[in-house]
Design a protein around this nucleic acid. Structure first.
Lengths: 210, 210
DNA sequence: CAGGAACATGAGACAAGCCTCAACTTCGTC
DNA sequence: GACGAAGTTGAGGCTTGTCTCATGTTCCTG
């Protein structure tokens, strides 16, 4: 909470911890043991707790760059001339990151960041995704009855397939995504049985209070 | 391994343990603590280990009825006149069970049963699902480029959505499934980027060696 | 370069969960 | 109904991981 700048050694340790956390999270997921992160950072477990009092604080700091990357991908998607190509590009990048980084997969699966700034970054991301969706719908390529919340199905669903196939067929998710994309096309859309998640429900679902 | 019949009290404890395991698995998943199962069965932890030497043995015994139910659903699906209705029926039942039973969800997500008979039952199930797929493809309603292995995407993917939404919107999975089904229709099928999982890959993916 | 604030350290208290085994209890049989 | 085999019990050792705090170290400022 205090804004006083860190001492030089503290700063250095902080950076090392974040770097180590990124590596460990990518390999083992967000519930990786903290001592491994400390060990890999070349720092004691006590120092880890000094810099990041809670597990969440470290997750936030380590995954901030992934959230930023997501926003960048969304921006890039909006720059595509073809709205469908933009949507596809965006979903492919998300899925690619899920497949490359177990921590990101956990994040997309419902372990939401908690810091104020992380939440704000996420909110910004949502708004851009809304635009990706709206643009594709206006062009008549994305089915009209889906909302932003339905893209969450893609993330959650994809995470499951990656978990099962990552170590067997690292590219299999592309096929899964291909099928999902065909389900999102306006062409052969059939009516859906229940209404989409409300914004509130989506938020709570990402809160992952299970 | 020995076929000597159990003593009456041992038999009773075994049944209680299976019942308790079913309840606990349904609530908390397959990695629920064993002491809770023993406690709920009104039996000591030592007895649990006497009856079921390994965790897997208990999972096998407790989930056998779910595997049997899956096979029954497949059979029922084949009895439908309309092949698409049969496929839909089958996938809906699977997804419904995933949504109602966290243990079944874990199972469908890659925690494969290990006993010989469980494996055989699963093999039988596969063969029936093959027929469901083939029948729907022959009728021209299911896209021709999918295989049985692609139905696994549905299971894995669905498990992710259920995990995120079960406690927020218990029916949301129906919408996810609706989208996925549209992606499986022959109508608007677009070419897929990578080949399907081989039988061997599928097997290893279900082995879940992560 | 001295003093004090900021920081780092890691042994150890704590908690969950797994699994075992020596002592005890129950069942089935003759 | 008594005997042995079969079964049950739960305290306790083990592992893995979290989190703390008394002690020692490092950095910065004057």
């Amino acid at each position: 909470m205090s804004d006083r700048p860190l001492r030089a050694d503290a700063r250095r340790n902080r950076d090392r911890l974040i770097e180590a956390a990124r590596a460990v999270y990518a390999e083992r997921g967000l519930d990786a043991p903290l001592d491994e992160i400390a060990r890999r950072a070349g720092v004691s477990i006590g120092t880890l707790y000094n810099r990041f009092p809670t597990r969440e604080a470290l997750v936030d700091a380590a995954l901030a760059d992934r959230i930023a990357a997501t926003a960048r991908f969304a921006e890039h998607a909006l720059a595509y001339e073809d709205p469908w190509a933009g949507l596809t590009y965006f979903l492919e990048r998300i899925c690619e990151m899920q497949s490359a980084d177990r921590g990101y997969r956990d994040l997309a699966g419902g372990a939401v960041p908690s810091s104020a700034e992380a939440r704000r970054a996420l909110g910004d991301g949502y708004r851009q995704m809304e635009r990706i969706v709206a643009r594709a719908q206006d062009a008549g390529v994305l089915r009209a009855d889906v909302t932003l919340a339905d893209l969450a199905f893609v993330c959650w669903g994809h995470a499951g397939t990656v978990a099962a196939t990552a170590h067997v067929a690292p590219d299999a998710w592309r096929r899964h995504l291909g099928l999902v994309l065909d389900g999102l096309r306006a062409e052969g859309a059939h009516p859906l049985p229940v209404p989409p998640l409300s914004a509130r429900q989506l938020d709570r679902a990402f809160g992952g209070c299970d």
